[in-house]
Computed example of a mutant assay.
Amino acid sequence: MATVLRATTELVAATWLNTLFDQPIVATTLPKPADGTPVWADTGFITVAVVGGGAGMYVPLRSPVVSVDCWAVNPQSAKPPWGKANNLAETVQAACYGPINMRLELPGGFPDVRALSAYSVSESRRITDDQSSYAHYSLDVQLHWVEAS
């Protein structure tokens, strides 16, 4: 029996959020620095994780809540670049106003999906006391999506 790939919320969230930026800066994990300097130091980075929500009982509509964590670092300073991380969070917040209604091509042979809407369900908040001097903001977004037909 062949394995059937199914879209996942983390793939949908990362793919949609990557459409908001000039280059791919969204994934499920923060890339580890190879030589001590994160490759994302110039752009910042966003990680996503499912934290709640649900799926339709009678229709294939998914409505998960996703934690969106925005990261920034200044390799030349121990002072976290709060403004850069906050700007990423505010970009995500601004994208949550109005319907999205776009087809997203997921990577790796996963089926395409239609992202219908996204709503911010929390204010972005500063996460302090990071030992690595990363600036970190977090907000929660509820997505509504279906597999495309």
Rank of each mutant, 00 (worst) to 15 (best):
Ala34Phe: 02
Tyr137Arg: 04
Val73Gln: 03
Tyr137Trp: 15
Ala95Thr: 12
Val73Glu: 03
Pro24Leu: 07
Pro107Arg: 09
Gly44His: 00
Asn74Phe: 03
Thr9Asn: 11
Pro99Lys: 09
His144Tyr: 13
Val141Asn: 01
Asp112Leu: 09
Phe110Pro: 02
Tyr119Gln: 14
His144Asn: 12
Met57Cys: 08
Thr47His: 02
Ala27Phe: 05
Val121Phe: 03
Val51His: 03
Val51Lys: 05
Ala85Gly: 00
Asn87Pro: 03
Trp82Phe: 11
Met102Val: 15
Leu61Arg: 10
Glu10Arg: 04
Asn101Arg: 15
Ala135Glu: 05
Ala72Val: 07
Ala34Cys: 00
Val39Asn: 08
Tyr58His: 14
Asp130Phe: 04
Cys96Gln: 03
Val39Ser: 15
Arg6Phe: 04
Ala55Ile: 11
Val73Pro: 03
Leu104Arg: 06
Val50Cys: 11
Thr19Asn: 07
Leu88His: 03
Thr28Ser: 05
Val51Tyr: 02
Gly36Val: 05
Ile100Phe: 06
Phe21Trp: 06
Thr37Ala: 08
Gly54Cys: 10
Thr3Trp: 15
Val73Thr: 06
Val4Asn: 00
Ser138Phe: 00
Tyr58Cys: 10
Glu90Phe: 04
Ile100Ala: 14
Thr43Val: 01
Asn87Phe: 08
Tyr97Ala: 15
Asp130Asn: 09
Pro33Met: 01
Gly44Ala: 00
Met57Phe: 11
Leu116Lys: 08
Val146Glu: 08
Tyr97Met: 10
Thr91Trp: 06
Val113Gln: 06
Ala34Lys: 04
Ser149Lys: 15
Pro75Arg: 11
Ile100Val: 13
Ala14Ser: 15
Trp145Met: 08
Val26Asn: 05
Thr43Leu: 03
Leu5Thr: 06
Val66Ser: 15
Cys96Glu: 02
Leu11Ser: 06
Lys84Val: 07
His144Glu: 13
Asp69Thr: 11
Thr9Ser: 13
Thr19Met: 05
Val141Pro: 05
Gln76Asn: 14
Asn87Thr: 09
Val68His: 01
Ala135Ser: 10
Val12Lys: 00
Pro107Ser: 02
Pro31Phe: 03
Thr37Arg: 14
Gly53Ile: 01
Val68Thr: 00
Ile25Leu: 01
Met1Glu: 04
Tyr134Asn: 13
Glu90Val: 06
Leu88Glu: 05
Ala135Leu: 14
Ser120Val: 13
Thr43Asp: 11
Tyr97Asp: 12
Thr28Glu: 04
Gln131Arg: 15
Gly108Gln: 12
Leu30Thr: 05
